[in-house]
Design a protein around this nucleic acid. Sequence first.
DNA 1: CGGTATCCTAGTAGATACTG
DNA 2: CAGTATCTACTAGGATACCG
Lengths: 156, 156
Amino acid sequence: MATRTAAQRRAEARAEYNAFLAACPSQQLLARVSGKWVTLVLSALGSGPDCDGDPRPMRYSELGRVLAGVSPKMLSQTLRSLERDGLISRTATATVPVTVTYELTDLGLSLHQTVRQLKRWSETHQDEVAAHRAAFDAARGEDPVPRGGAQPEAVP
Amino acid sequence: MATRTAAQRRAEARAEYNAFLAACPSQQLLARVSGKWVTLVLSALGSGPDCDGDPRPMRYSELGRVLAGVSPKMLSQTLRSLERDGLISRTATATVPVTVTYELTDLGLSLHQTVRQLKRWSETHQDEVAAHRAAFDAARGEDPVPRGGAQPEAVP
DNA sequence: CGGTATCCTAGTAGATACTG
DNA sequence: CAGTATCTACTAGGATACCG
């Protein structure tokens, strides 16, 4: 029969939607960039260790020092995924001990520029957001007036 | 004594770094924007249900229909966090049944513009990334030459 | 030095059911 | 219609130990 429950209809819709989400370039980019260390690696390679210089290649251990507290696993994983997407290039020199450097590609550099735009927005508006957030929290804490939805019941 | 293990030093560094990360506006923004439904809500409110119109207010259930497959919980949660940050505004009209509409604020609109920049980048470069990715995977699959690190052992 | 392999935890997304 | 409450599942992130 053609009758479906709401849950079934949602499940079907979700199945279709997954294809859309998977195909949607901006969602993919967000998934790539939203990793905890991705933007930090990008910044380090794009603006030097001091975050306000020129792009330059860096070694694995140097990145590990700049991104304080990163575990070897996450650093490896992040670098590998960025390399996979052609955003950074990896160069191994057969010295002893082996020397490996990472560097932004042109593609990675262009992404870094775009991310800087986002960074600029957040720097410009961070206090606005903070103010809204504080106001919102204060309103909910001190004046819990019902806003149409259910409100947590006060002590009887 | 002042001697610390590598793990202890990393832990300390991480503790300091957390403050930096928490304070870093761009990281905060990314955390805010990288939620699965955040950008979709932003797009829906910023470009209409067809994703290529003008910004206009939408109702809860309308958003639920446009963002196919979203559960009421996630929709609520996403809308609430966006409202908290002052990116959208919520308006409840005391009709029966109650009518609630959501709308981008100026702040939310400006963020939407910025996110569109990111979207543009991903649309421009998505095939480059895909090509790199394919090449990388092919190289690893067909020519597993050791690149300095350990390679997964073949069957003995 | 530059990683990989293994195990573990904690936060986030989703299903389901219920309320004003 | 517009949510809230509760439970479960998944996976990103991290600690640890070890190899080339």
